[in-house]
């Protein structure tokens, strides 16, 4: 069955609003995401999922040249970065989009749906 990545991108424009949220305010979001994860598992759609540490924790490795170069920071200069993702199995895009709609509601963020290559 085809696999899709449902990714949630961190938008720095949201930083202020998210930063101002209290743990009590965050709690319903965590619970909704938990419930969504449970639903994915119950349906057999779940493959893998995870939330990522903030972009400040990322390190780049480039071993395309003569020697491996390690640098601090993200690969891309883009202000938006990957915050977390689900990898799911779905029969087709419509099914994947329906999961994405539920995931977006749960985590209160935009979700990008991208198919994996076959084989």
């Amino acid at each position: 069955m085809p696999q899709f990545m449902l990714s949630v991108h961190h938008d720095p424009a949201e930083d202020e609003r998210m930063g101002a949220m209290t743990p009590e305010e965050m709690q319903p979001i965590f619970e909704a995401v938990d419930a969504f994860n449970t639903a994915l598992q119950a349906d057999g759609a779940w493959v893998f999922a995870g939330g990522l540490q903030p972009i400040e924790a990322s390190t780049c490795v480039d071993n395309t040249g003569e020697s491996s170069i390690v640098t601090d920071g993200p690969f891309s200069e883009s202000k938006e970065y990957l915050g977390g993702f689900w990898i799911i199995e779905a029969a087709d895009l419509d099914t994947a989009l329906a999961w994405a709609a539920r995931g977006s509601r749960a985590c209160q963020g935009k979700v990008e749906v991208r198919p994996f290559q076959g084989e």
């Binding site: 085809p2 899709f4 779905a90 029969a91 087709d92 895009l93 419509d94 198919p115």
Partner: peptide, 14 residues
């Protein structure tokens, strides 16, 4: 083809 857009009539709800 790549995104698996289905060749079917959508579910009644959609």
């Amino acid at each position: 083809a790549a995104a698996h857009i289905p060749f079917r009539v959508p579910a009644e709800a959609d």
